[in-house]
Design a protein around this nucleic acid. Sequence first.
DNA 1: TTCCTATATATAGGAACGCTATATACGTTG
DNA 2: CAACGTATATAGCGTTCCTATATATAGGAA
Lengths: 111, 111
Amino acid sequence: MGVTSSIKRGSAELAILSVLVEEPLHGYEISKRIEEHTGGVLRFNLASLYPMLYRLEKRGWVKASWQTTSSGRRRRCYSLTAAGRKQLPPLRDEWRLFFRALDRLAGVSRA
Amino acid sequence: MGVTSSIKRGSAELAILSVLVEEPLHGYEISKRIEEHTGGVLRFNLASLYPMLYRLEKRGWVKASWQTTSSGRRRRCYSLTAAGRKQLPPLRDEWRLFFRALDRLAGVSRA
DNA sequence: TTCCTATATATAGGAACGCTATATACGTTG
DNA sequence: CAACGTATATAGCGTTCCTATATATAGGAA
C-alpha cells in the first residue's frame, strides 16, 4: 500500500489544497484525511507535511491560526486563502494534462 | 507547453521504457520521441536523460551498444532487456493506482 | 501508576531527480 | 564559414520527500 516516493513526488501540494478546500484542518488531520480519502495509496510523512505547509503559508495559499482545545492542547488550524483557492483549478489542469500525456505515451490507464 | 518539473518528477523512467518497448532508439531520439508523442507536454532535458539512461543500464533494464553511422558518427543505441520489459506492467500499475488516488482526492480528471 | 498508543508539532540530515550551464564534435544548409 | 541541428557528456544546483529524532499531552490498558 502506498505508491513509491518518486512517483507521488510533487503531488503533496495538490493533495493538501484539495482536502483544505472542503474545510479547515490542522496538520495531523490533513495527513490522515489524505491517507483515508485515497485508501492508503497517497500517504505523506508528517515530517514532509509540515515544511510543505510552511511553504504554502509563505506563498499565501493557506493561513494558519493557533488554537487551544478544551483540554488545553495547542494546534495550528490551516485554511485555504482566496489566493490558494484560485490556484486549485490551474493546478488540476496541469495534472490532468500530465496524466493524459503519460497515459498516451505509456498506456497507464489500460488495464 | 510542458508540465512543471515537480509534477513530472519520476515519470522519466516510465516514459523511456515506454518508447523503447516499440523499438531501440538512441538517446537523442528517445528525447524527441517522448516530446512528439505527448504533443510537447512531456519534455525531458537531455542532461536529465543521459544520467537516467545510465541508471537504467546499471539496473539491467536497458542495454546500450555503440553504433557508427555511415557518415562516421558515433552514437549509443538503447534497447529494452527482458528484465526491462518485465518492469513495465508493474510500473504502469503503480502509476494507474496513483492517478486514480489523486483523481479521487483532487478531481483531476473532471473538466 | 506505569506503560503504550494516538495525537500534535518541529527540525536535522540525506537521497533522488530534474534543472541550467557548459563542453565537445560532426553534418548539413545557407 | 557561419549557423543550426544532431549527438553525447558532466558539474553543480534546487526542490521535494525521506528517515531519524525531539518534545509533549491525552486516554486506555495492565
